[in-house]
Design a protein around this nucleic acid. Structure first.
Lengths: 151, 151
DNA sequence: CACTGTATGTCAGACTTCTGACATGGATGC
DNA sequence: GCATCCATGTCAGAAGTCTGACATACAGTG
């Protein structure tokens, strides 16, 4: 109890540092394709699960649905995706990639995969699997609403 | 070569998810203290290394020095830190916490430590040390300017 | 059937951060 | 000594994201 943050050993600080380094490297890799990281993330999600609504995309990309709204308008104007004028059910507008959108995603996904490969190259597959497990545990522990620091 | 990103197994996506969850939890913990995450990070750095310049702080907190400039003005107006009117050497203005600033940092650091503790509670000390090592390896690999994906 | 609750899309404004630019102080080169 | 380069502080504008708000569509309940 009454513990303080020690910067030298803080996993949180390392987490932020790694996420920032990854984002910077992704920005550099995506700049030649005229895509931001958020735009790429949106395309990647749509490639994996076509027909997602804007709200679903927002949650998957970790932005608000208002931000996703502006993002989708930009990508639609560039012809990378299409949305119906009216919703087939409820209010959700299913979004899909165009052919041009799939081509842009393919190029971007290749570029980002190279960045991620560079990031994890030094780790063995087993170590990588451990990291994934541990990061998932972090997310699960933080998402739990109650905070039993000492049960 | 020509690899694509697989969302289900992407460490980058997990990294972003974990960083977002941590930031959200920190925002919630710091809101009662009227501090943002960036402001807290700034105070924490100054607590560990008094006398840092604005540019040094910016690099440590992962924002631009322009953003840090605005951030420091706000914290100075609230009386949490002080900066000299002129630089004792060069252009760098050494920044220091006031007594009130140290008090705010103590409260904030305790709150953030609880969040971080909740995040890592499920991991053994050995597993935690591994995660730190691996995250450091990610940063080092991404910061390397050349990208030898396949040497 | 009406009411409530939840989810989605959209608009408007504020806030934060970034990019670009300029001036100043110091160090390094010749 | 002077020119050049680098780091820092600061100002101004642009871009992205968030908060707040409102309307709409469906599901569940009385």
């Amino acid at each position: 109890m009454d513990a303080r943050v020690e910067l030298d050993t803080s996993v949180g600080y390392l987490l932020k540092q790694a996420a920032t380094a990854l984002r910077t490297a992704m920005e550099a890799a995506l700049r030649p394709l005229s895509l931001t990281v958020s735009q790429y993330a949106c395309l990647e999600q749509l490639g994996a699960r076509p027909g997602m609504s804007g709200s679903e995309l927002a949650r998957a990309v970790f932005v608000t649905r208002q931000s996703m709204h502006a993002l989708l308008r930009g990508l639609e104007e560039r012809g990378l995706l299409t949305r119906p004028a009216s919703a087939p059910h409820g209010r959700a507008l299913p979004t899909d990639l165009t052919g041009e959108g799939r081509a842009a995603l393919a190029a971007a996904s290749t570029a980002v995969a190279a960045v991620e490969q560079r990031m994890v190259a030094a780790l063995s597959p087993a170590a990588l699997a451990r990291v994934r497990t541990d990061l998932s545990a972090f997310v699960a522990a933080l998402d739990a609403p109650d905070a039993p620091t000492e049960p």
